[in-house]
Amino acid sequence: MATEPDKSAGAQKDSQQGYVYLPLIAGWLVPGAGHFLLRKWGRGALLAASILGMFAIGLAMQGKLYAGAHDMLDLLGLAGDLGNGLLYIVSRVLGLGADQVQVTTADYGTKFIVVAGLLNVIAAVDAHNLRTGRKA
């Protein structure tokens, strides 16, 4: 008869199978997906809610989505935005976000979007660390 720790160990083993970088890539493309793949449902849900919430509030504040790198600051902003993965790509395709920042709130919104991307990268790396066993 299987005991509770045995079940947990089995589930853990199942989640450890497959391509080692899958949680990293999935977590980057979709916030929280890396943790979901590793069956860390609670952590994944909280990460997804936080990153999606920050990105959505940034867009609602008329934040700008960086489209190109005209100077160094734009390049850094674009790198941050790209951290959002599919959120960034879909938003660009749908034409969301302001073209130019005209009010203070929009400037905050731009920063919200960039930071959401950076937080998503941290979350994706955390999923990778869980996958490789570097973190429990």
Partner: peptide
């Protein structure tokens, strides 16, 4: 357009960033 006050923006930013920092 969503226009939070400066303080509300700080609180929202802090909330989301803290959740991610705490978990990771």
């Amino acid at each position: 357009m969503f226009r939070p006050s400066h303080f509300a923006a700080v609180v929202l930013f802090a909330l989301f960033a803290s959740v991610v920092f705490g978990i990771t």
